[in-house]
Design a binder for these strands. Structure first.
Length: 495
RNA sequence: GCGCGGGUAGCUCAGCGGUAGAGCAGUUGGCUUUUAACCAAUUGGCCGUGGGUUCGAUCCCCACCCCGCGUACCA
């Protein structure tokens, strides 16, 4: 094969035409003395809120991004929007003058931020509109927006460039606004019940409070390794010891594990502790909280999940009271003779039931896998699974009548764990034994200072965790945790 | 890690051995109550990356990168 002559090699990559056109407009703005990147602009309204509580003949001043334009000769319509929604604007050449009108038609693009000042009116098509008297460029956009009709559908780009997703997809914007409002409401709900919000370390010497691999980092000045927390539990219990008898923390946890539809390496967890309460009261609290959120934000206790075509694919019924069933009863419903089998026979039986079992599984793990595959993943309406085997939950109190199980619930909704709740273990001697049994070889992972704190006396207490991301998924119908986390973790993409 | 699917214009998508297509966006005209505005014309591509096979590869084969779904591991 012959090599191409040098003269035929393509010219060096230049900016695409679309980008160049916008840079040219930027320069033209500067030439006309129009500042393309604006500054302070005092507003009276936001686009969405103005449209939602619209009145005619109202003088208004507001800012937003130009989302669409419909120009027809000597007049034109355009929509401006932000996280509150959008509103239509109208400009008439005769009213605003040639200069302002041509600035708008010639130099302002879809995607630019503008400030408008004018008076509201309703068009003959019935659309609430701002009749613009003056327009101010607040920020020139140098890149074109995604398709105005289809929005941004490429999953990778939605996650990597969330701002584009938020600009162009109404659903996505709504999910994150709702998420924010729900989290604010959770705080209000707990504060109304005299819970105190606290902050405990995210960088910990020993990553305790759950069974998960932590992220490791290093503090130079202290010359010591640190771990990002996998749970705040052990610090919150220290605060119970300190007399903070109703507390909660709502913030990020970090777990160095696989990523999936249900797992992001950093995720938001609520933990709350209520001294002198038990797991049953905590179940009542969680039931009340989630129903409150559903009624406030989802229009009731029937949560409909829809596919992209808008068809209802699942309805979750949150009507109270929620079922409360013992773990072992749920297993017996799958196989009545399960607990009469030998551990070896249980492995065989699990395989017969279609549950894959690893060769080194402990007996309780075999049962737990059967539970996860045949109970949890099939349970969509809320159910409190109570009295789990103690091996699964080393920080909870053993049941008074049967010390092989613990006084806990595991709330399952939408086929996944949403919230655990415990009667917290406050006996320091038993707590040490339980943690040692769990740690096995890795005994250095025991948080000795936590045990010391318990030895000073921790009040009996009920505790809960709520996986906020999964809760939001359930309430908004999102199928992936990435759709409720603004910037989910992705692999670096080579340039 | 393994399996399946995907990566083509700024965006949404066709094309699957024979000169790269459409809609939207953009550009140029026209249009003073439109709203996926409309009418006319038109610009725009390392067809994810690197190797093969072939006269010829966006298309077939191999490897790699990234994304999604499932599964396994971490537990």
């Amino acid at each position: 094969m012959e090599t191409q002559p040098q003269a035929n090699t393509p010219p060096p990559p230049s900016e695409s035409e679309l980008l160049q056109v916008r840079r040219d407009k930027l320069q033209k703005m500067k030439d006309k003395g129009v500042a393309p990147f604006g500054g302070k602009f005092e507003t009276t309204h936001e686009p969405g809120t103005l449209r939602a509580s619209f009145e005619n003949t109202l003088p208004v001043k507001l800012g937003g991004r130009v989302l669409s334009r419909r120009i027809q000769g000597k007049a034109g319509f355009f929509d401006i929007g932000d996280f509150t929604g959008k509103i239509q604007c109208y400009m008439n050449k005769k009213e605003v003058g040639d200069e302002a009108f041509e600035l708008f038609t010639d130099l302002v693009d879809m995607g630019d931020w503008v400030g408008v000042e004018g008076e509201t009116f309703t068009t003959k098509m019935g659309e609430p509109t701002v009749n613009v008297k003056a327009i101010t460029v607040l920020s020139k956009s140098l890149r074109p927006l995604p398709d105005k009709w289809h929005g941004l559908t490429d999953r990778e780009q939605k996650y990597r460039q969330r701002y584009l997703d938020l600009i162009s997809n109404e659903n996505s914007r709504q999910v994150f606004v709702t998420r924010s409002q729900m989290i604010a409401e959770i705080r209000r709900f707990l504060q109304d019940r005299q819970f105190l919000e606290v902050e405990t370390p995210m960088m910990q010497d020993v990553a305790g409070g759950a069974a998960a691999r932590p992220f490791e980092t290093f503090h130079n000045a202290l010359n010591m390794p640190l771990y990002l927390r996998i749970a705040p539990e052990l610090f919150l219990k220290r605060l119970l010891v300190g007399g903070f008898t109703r507390i909660f923390e709502l913030n990020r946890n970090f777990r160095n594990e696989g990523i999936s539809r249900r797992h992001n390496p950093e995720f938001t967890m609520l933990e709350a502790y209520w001294a002198f309460a038990d797991f049953e009261q905590m179940a009542d609290l969680v039931e009340g909280l989630i129903c409150h959120l559903a009624e406030k934000f989802c229009g009731g206790l029937l949560i409909e999940h829809k596919n992209e075509a808008g068809e209802v694919t699942r309805t979750i019924n949150l009507q109270r009271p929620w079922k409360r069933v013992a773990y072992r009863d749920l297993i017996r419903a799958v196989d009545p003779g399960w607990f009469e089998l030998t551990p070896e026979a249980r492995k065989t039986r699990a395989a017969e039931l279609g549950v894959e079992i690893g060769p080194n599984f402990e007996d309780y793990e075999v049962t737990q896998h059967v539970f996860e595959k045949l109970v949890e993943e099939k349970q969509f309406d809320p159910m409190f699974v109570t009295h789990c085997p103690k091996e699964l939950v080393p920080l909870a109190k053993q049941n008074a009548a049967d010390d092989s199980v613990v006084d806990v619930y595991e709330l399952v909704i939408n086929g996944q764990e949403i919230s655990p709740g415990y009667s917290e273990l406050n006996d320091p001697i038993i707590q040490r034994q339980r943690l040692e049994e769990q740690a096995g070889e890795e005994i250095q992972k025991i948080d000795e200072d936590f045990i010391t704190a318990l030895e000073f006396g921790m009040p009996p207490a009920g505790g809960i965790g709520i996986g906020i991301d999964r809760l939001i998924m359930m309430l908004t119908g999102a199928e992936s945790i990435r759709d409720v986390v603004l910037f989910p973790q992705l692999k670096r993409k080579a340039e």
